[in-house]
Design a protein around this nucleic acid. Structure first.
Lengths: 250, 250
DNA sequence: CAGCCGGACTGATCTGGATCAGCAATCGGA
DNA sequence: TCCGATTGCTGATCCAGATCAGTCCGGCTG
């Protein structure tokens, strides 16, 4: 039964797992989703996946690896807007808009399924339930961007760092890549700085302080939560926006 | 022909105009949209439209007036995430998620059409084209939040202010509420501060500097662009993410 | 092997914007 | 008509985080 086999393979993908939290996907939905999954591509570090200003870009669903979406300012500084981990949709806006309004680059080697504009829109018109699920996933991403905005606007550097690493940890746990104890994080301090709106120097100091206070240790590509509850308290971290599944069983 | 009349009335609403920029809406779509429009409500200043943590909230389409969505931090400070003006969707996330993750309060008297969760999801499953259009509108909103994030993360207070007021002006122009010369803006300096991640005191200074440099004047609830081009240059404002219509004519 | 490069890390100094404190004008309500 | 609330506005002071200017270490390359 090759068909059944492929269906269950899709069902187990991080992306399907995420969407299934929101709506119950029928076999029809899953089949439609498998059409989106056909083209698998690899991106090495340094090769942009999506480039600002270019037209007719594709979107991708990340299968493995980390990427980040960012914007460059005229002055040369950049702001990382979001981190993409396995199971995340990426570049949806660059498909819906004529020209991409941001860049996406891999942080590690990334394997991702390419989703062409046509395929996406066809899928939407044929399986509205899937469309709604994608809208939900997009809203979840927006909620993360909003939280990131609050981070940068109103939290101190230390709170910001803690909140950011906690959120990342919670997201990784949802796809089985982390625990309450910690996770592997391939981000350099320079990347953290670009994400948090800080200088790399200050990132270093903040990480040292957190370590010295016994809150968390980020060394050698590994985040360890030394005192999870204290971190949550200090950062004002509320994860409901990440893992509350929708109430909607169309 | 009451039916035709009502259809064309819907077609002329700011919301329909915005969506029509993306997909060509059929009569069926417009009729479905009119179902969403039935319940008209008014909100006075001080009456929250959406409250963080509450469940089963409705969404709204703003017909007239200004509102803002914001988050409150444990420490008491708040961050305004987005401003809603006529034609904007509001509270979409609070419908798709079980509990609202943000607040929305009116800045002026707001008139808005209430959109119930059921109605929205029914509409999506029956008119996928409309669903795609709403996804597009949501993506446009996300693009604005992203730009806001870059504002706060990487722009100086002056650039931030200029960029924010320019974006607002561009949005208002799209719905016929402003010109290249300026617009009426009911936001107090305190609101601006909460939106821009600044203190009210500093907002005042920045506005004074912009005025003294002959860039823009914000007084008595009116924004006047004294030197539009210089402002755009200084703030690095690129409006493509606002008014590029989509390429998609399903 | 030397030379190089990228990332972690540190101290010294500078500054943008916060905070504190207070005045003036406007407005709506009793 | 006066009172209290709100908003605009300003000066003085303080501090979080930027910037500058490096060192140190490990891995890669010629």
């Amino acid at each position: 039964m090759p068909e059944t086999a492929s269906l269950s393979a899709i069902q187990d993908s991080p992306f399907a797992r995420k969407l299934a939290a929101f709506v119950k996907l029928s076999d029809l939905d899953l089949t439609a989703m498998s059409d989106l999954y056909r083209r698998r591509r690899r991106f090495a570090v340094g090769v942009d996946m999506i480039h600002q200003g270019q037209t007719n870009q594709s979107a991708y669903v990340v299968a493995s690896g980390w990427a980040c979406s960012y914007k460059i300012l005229p002055g040369g500084s950049r702001q990382i807007v979001d981190i993409q981990i396995p199971g995340d949709f990426l570049g949806l806006r660059s498909v819906l808009f004529r020209t991409a309004d941001h860049n996406v680059e891999p942080i590690t080697l990334v394997q991702a399924s390419e989703v062409k504009q046509r395929d996406l829109l066809n899928t939407f018109s044929q399986t509205p339930r899937l469309a709604t699920a994608v809208l939900w996933a997009a809203s979840r991403d927006e909620a993360m961007v909003v939280e990131h905005l609050v981070d940068i606007g109103r939290r101190s550097a230390t709170e910001r760092m803690a909140h950011f690493l906690l959120e990342l940890g919670a997201r990784l746990r949802l796809v089985g890549l982390g625990t309450r104890a910690g996770y592997l994080c391939p981000m350099s301090q320079y990347l953290l700085a670009d994400a948090l709106g800080l200088s790399a120097v200050h990132v270093n100091r903040v990480l040292r302080e957190l370590r010295e206070e016994g809150m968390l240790t980020f060394q050698k590509g590994r985040v360890v939560f030394d005192d999870y509850d204290a971190l949550v308290e200090m950062a004002g971290f509320d994860r409901t926006y990440l893992d509350q599944d929708g109430p909607l069983l169309l």
